[in-house]
């Protein structure tokens, strides 16, 4: 198990290093000069040069990269070109907000997705199954921006039971925080729940028709106990899918945060792209990639724990 984890950690570090290069170069491949964006309508050449000098944009790209990575290893991610605020400070403000949003969305996704998946598998071929699979199809098909605007229209404008937007810190006002988070987390969680529902249903159906379940059934095991056993073995697939869905969750958060004006990572990335704010863009994407790699590392470890064959094969499966 230790060797397996070590192998995975080394792979993750290499992935992060390569990702840092891709993120750095990718940001600079965006057409549009950050100095032009900062200079706005006044595109005085002397001013443009002064801005490039200020942010080191006139250096060769490899010098910029090694300066950046050298500083990043000491925790200095530079300053935002828009307002000169340190990137690390901004990320520390934004990260907990997106983590809270993603956490709530995962919770909602898990509760709805697994419940619907189990019910759908157990009641296969019934009306309940059709409703659940229909929900899965709709959840996957409806774009989150549309769902978000619909939710605002219904809950904030028509019924006025929840706020349309805004974020209040949990420590500042726990009730206000949850009220502000319910709609965005639900919108984000519905897409995830649809995926989890389909995966749970398929995995559980597979397990329920496995030999060991048939044997248990022939020995008189109750239906509930039978499902309980099969569900635990189905969860390896669900956990893997959950890890892979993290990327989609971050993508979904970008849209959801824009609609609900949640000052999280997604909104930060979108705003940084529009403003060609390289330091913010690099910092935010790098932190997101780190999170993604870490979660997948944890998923691998969890998977190895749930499935002993993984660690015996050293992860080569």
């Amino acid at each position: 198990m230790t060797r397996f984890i070590l192998q995975r950690v080394i792979t993750s570090v290499i992935t992060l290093f390569l990702a840092s290069i891709v993120v750095f170069i990718g940001a600079r491949m965006l057409p549009g000069d950050p100095a032009q964006v900062l200079a706005g309508e006044s595109a005085d050449p002397a001013l443009l040069e002064a801005i490039r000098e200020q942010f080191g944009l006139n250096q060769p790209i490899w010098v910029q990269y090694f300066t950046y990575i050298g500083q990043a290893l000491t925790g200095n991610l530079g300053v935002s070109t828009r307002d000169n605020i340190p990137v690390a400070e901004i990320l520390l403000q934004r990260l907990p907000i997106t983590l809270e949003l993603a956490g709530l969305a995962i919770l909602i996704g898990l509760v709805i997705g697994i419940t619907a998946g189990v019910v759908s598998a157990v009641k296969r071929g019934t009306f309940v199954d059709y409703v659940a699979t229909g929900f899965g199809l709709v959840g996957l098909s409806v774009p989150s921006f549309w769902l978000g605007l619909l939710a605002i229209l219904l809950f904030a404008i028509t019924w006025q039971v929840l706020p349309a937007s805004g974020f209040v810190g949990f420590a500042e006002d726990p009730i206000g925080n949850l009220r502000g988070m319910i709609l965005p987390a639900t919108v984000l969680g519905i897409g995830l729940s649809a995926v989890l529902m389909r995966q749970t249903r398929a995995a559980l159906l597979g397990q329920l028709s496995a030999d060991y379940v048939r044997t248990a059934r022939s020995k008189g095991v109750t239906r509930g106990r039978e499902v309980s056993h099969a569900l635990r073995n189905s969860l390896t697939t669900v956990v893997t899918v959950l890890g892979l869905q993290l990327g989609a969750l971050i993508g979904g958060a970008i849209v959801t945060e824009q609609i609900f004006v949640i000052p999280g990572f997604g909104k930060l990335i979108i705003d940084a792209v529009a403003a060609r704010n390289y330091p913010i863009l690099q910092g935010a994407v790098l932190v997101a990639v780190t999170g993604y790699v870490l979660v997948n590392l944890l998923v691998d470890v969890a998977y190895a724990y749930l499935n002993p064959r993984m660690r015996l094969s050293g992860g080569s499966e």
């Binding site: 605002i152 404008i157 937007s165």
Partner: peptide, 18 residues
Amino acid sequence: YTFITDPNVRSANLRSGE
């Protein structure tokens, strides 16, 4: 001053009183 880039979302927030 809060920043809402999408005009539809600005309208929605105005109507909801946010």
